[in-house]
Design a binder for these strands. Structure first.
Length: 704
RNA sequence: GGGCGGUUAGCUCAGCUGGGAGAGCACCUGCCUUACAAGCAGGGGGUCGCGUGUUCGAGCCACGCACCGCCCACCA
């Protein structure tokens, strides 16, 4: 037998992967009787390309799946992708724009068909990329959040939530993204530092020569002011409560009201109230039954109510309003002002708080069992400290705005008749639930993409049908993800899983590290700081990449170091050559057996069992970095540097019995070592396993 | 504003319930020793972010500060 003196990943990886596929090694049998072990892959967006986060998370999950499989579990790693509503629609709209078109030129049906076409062509790219890492996903049961069965599951959940009274429609102020032309949820708003100005504006008091000065960063919304507020206990202004001021420029008479919300120590202690364009003012407005005026439209431009400013983008209107205030002598001054401003997580556009009619889901009741599950330890986060993030959000959870003004996604299962009656059904209703008319129009909106991904652990198994797979593989065991979507996704899966599948969807939430760029900045395409994990696989091999990622990802944030990947490559090569040496000595010997005659043999056997125990213990504790270091030290230092070197004397000696004994022990330790290494380095170990003497099953299917 | 994590050798990081400062890479010296030069043997290199405190003793515990990264947050 000849084996290359150097491990060449590129020539081994495709071949070994194909063997796993041919042996159907990644599918799960619901009737095997073995204890299940299930991980739902966080479904990547169909628009996504494999990035470092995917690669790390994929490696973590694959290591666990392979480990548990070898330990005798029936393992299932749920595979699939997310339709990613806004993200995907934006990609297609961008393509259209390049051709000078908008989605409205195509119309809804043609546009959605175009997205499907795109999805058929490119939507599986990232799943193919996961294969390069050796991921043992259940490819045969790949799911998509827009599969027909999944669509039915989403409708079932929506209708059921509606029937239980959680889902309602309301006219409220929402986070509006002008460039997406849609509302988004609170969690999709990203706050960014902005250097604006704080303007001090004088409002004349009616029947008085007095002026009241307010401070605002958004003078353009003055046009929609419907009150001015002071704190009820503020002696400076107490006498003015109940009087009237004249809103500058529009000369509207509005009341001076008192509200606890106003801070006496900010600005002048007088707050202008614009219920139509500020979430706080909206709440105050509702408390005081103020009129809700709108001067900024859904396109982010001033609307007809804005008079002379109509048609201007809000930002441009701001400057013109300021100029007018100045010329009216009502601008008292302006100060530089730095604050946090909401931006759309998807488009990056500045959020415009606007009042609109949307569907909301009341989350408070749904949150309770999820909070309790974490408090009681039935669901545990690793590391534990991440539970703070979860509790903080869940204990003060607010209604979830679930409707999106998009075309790509799960259209709401809601119909309206001409009289405005609402009919919520699992499938197209024949008649209005209230008046019976057959003239119904479906709500054009679609659901927040996180609504459907919230059903992932059970909708992928056939729910609401009571399938064998659902019975066998729900709930899952581990959910591994980035800490950025603990609330966005993990918490929602927990709430919906409990409500609809009757149990928490998993018991262990793994929050893996975030890999930063080598300079400590965020790794991102837009910053140009991204490192493509597939390049690493090309250059160092998949096993090396996996090893390196596990090695470096020990704390919450970690800087990328190619040195760790390189260490993995060297370890793979070391394993390769150690095996080569052992196999050359072993020849075509029979099944290996350890010998305990020599103290050196006893030493390595003892080290092997010690290292095995350590590695398994560390992996059980999700300490991948520690496990990988232990593996390295055993393979390199104990086995190669000490045992193999010590074994040479006997191997090359005159004593035939000693030669036999040491060669047997070498082979035996090698075999166990390959098995122990397999979850981390599946390719090189599987290849070497195939060179071991005797008929043997694939390593991935062999017991640990 | 609140929370989480980090700050240890030139670089990336380990250091568990307080008592030896460590690994890999890089560097230096000597070896192409017949599994591997992606190798072997050996070596230099750190007031463990700053300050105070607890202790016989602190990288490790407490409090405070600084800087970096991230999450959450309805103060114009």
């Amino acid at each position: 037998m000849t084996i290359d003196p150097r491990y060449e990943p590129a020539s081994v990886e495709p071949r070994q992967f194909q063997r796993w596929i041919d042996a159907d090694a990644f599918s799960a049998d619901p009737n095997s009787g073995k204890p299940p072990f299930v991980i739902p892959l966080p479904p990547p967006n169909i628009t996504g390309e494999l990035h470092m986060g995917h690669a790390l998370n994929g490696t973590v999950q694959d290591t666990l799946i392979r480990l548990r499989g070898m330990q005798g579990h029936e393992t299932l790693w749920i595979c699939g992708t997310d339709h990613a509503g806004i993200a995907t629609q934006n990609v297609i709209e961008k393509q259209l724009r390049a051709q000078g078109l908008t989605r409205h030129d195509l119309g809804r049906e043609a546009f959605v068909e175009k997205v499907w076409e795109w999805r058929r062509q490119y939507g599986a790219t990232i799943i193919q990329q996961f294969k390069r890492l050796g991921s043992s996903l259940d490819y045969g049961n790949e799911r998509f959040t827009m599969d027909p069965e999944y669509v039915a599951a989403v409708a079932e959940v929506f209708v059921s939530l509606y029937e239980k009274g959680y889902m309602y429609r309301d006219n409220r102020i929402v986070n509006w993204c002008p460039s997406c032309s849609s509302a988004i949820s609170d969690l999709e708003v990203r706050y960014e530092h902005a250097a604006d100005a704080l303007y001090h504006v004088r409002y004349p008091i009616k029947d008085s020569t007095e002026l009241l000065t307010v401070a605002t960063v958004r003078p353009e919304t003055i046009l929609a002011d419907t009150a001015v507020a002071v704190h009820p206990a503020d002696d400076r202004y107490r006498h003015l409560v109940g009087r009237t001021v004249i809103v500058p420029i529009v000369d509207r008479e509005v009341p001076i009201i008192a509200d606890e919300y106003v801070r006496t120590d900010f600005g002048t202690g007088v707050l202008k109230i614009t219920p139509g364009h500020d979430p706080n003012d909206f709440e105050i407005g509702r408390r005081h039954e103020l009129e809700e005026l709108t001067v900024i439209g859904f396109d982010g431009r001033m609307n007809d109510q804005a008079g002379e400013f109509a048609g201007l983008p809000a930002a441009a209107a701001r400057q013109q309003v300021v100029d007018r205030l100045f010329s009216l002598g009502l601008l008292k001054g302006e100060d530089p002002y730095e604050h946090e401003v909401g931006h759309c997580d998807r488009s990056g556009d500045r959020i415009e708080p606007l009042i609109s009619l949307q569907w909301f889901c009341d989350m408070q009741e749904l949150a309770k069992p999820a909070i309790e599950a974490v408090e009681s330890g039935r669901v545990t986060f690793h590391p534990r400290s991440q539970e703070n993030t979860f509790f903080h959000w869940m204990r003060q959870i607010r209604p979830w705005c679930v409707s999106r003004q998009l075309w790509w996604g799960h259209q709401l299962p809601v119909w309206y008749c001409a009289d405005g009656h609402v009919t919520v059904e699992r499938s197209q209703p024949a008649a209005c639930a209230e008046c019976g008319t057959a003239q119904l129009e479906r709500d054009p909106d679609v659901l927040d993409t996180w609504f459907s991904s919230g059903l992932w652990p059970f909708a992928t198994l056939g729910w609401p049908e009571q399938t064998e797979r659902l019975a066998a593989f729900y709930p899952a065991n581990v959910l591994s993800t980035d800490r950025g979507i603990i609330n966005l996704w993990v918490a929602r899966m927990m709430m919906l899983g409990q409500e609809f599948a009757g149990q928490m969807p998993f018991s262990d939430v793994l929050i893996h590290a975030t890999v930063q760029a080598p300079d400590g900045r965020r790794m991102s395409k837009s910053l140009g700081t991204g490192i493509n994990p597939l390049d690493l696989v090309d250059r160092h091999g998949a096993d090396a990449t996996r090893y390196g990622l596990l090695k470096m990802a020990s704390t919450q944030d970690v800087r990328f170091s190619e040195g760790s990947i390189d260490e993995g490559a060297r370890l793979a090569n070391k394993l390769w050559n150690a095996s080569r040496f052992v196999l050359m000595q072993a020849g075509e010997a029979a099944a290996p057996a350890p010998s305990t005659a020599d103290p050196v043999d006893r030493w390595i056997l003892s080290r092997l069992s010690g290292a095995s125990a350590d590695v398994l213990r560390l992996l059980d504790a999700y300490d991948f970095s520690g496990a990988v270091k232990e593996l390295y030290s055993f393979v390199w230092n104990d086995f190669c540097d000490w045992y193999v070197e010590a074994a040479k004397a006997r191997l090359y000696g005159e004593d035939a019995d000693a030669r036999q004994a040491v060669s047997q022990t070498l082979l035996w330790v090698l075999e166990r070592m390959l098995a122990l290494m397999h979850p981390v380095m599946p390719f090189v170990t599987e290849e070497l396993w195939s060179h071991l003497p005797g008929d043997r099953e694939l390593l991935v299917l062999s017991p640990m």
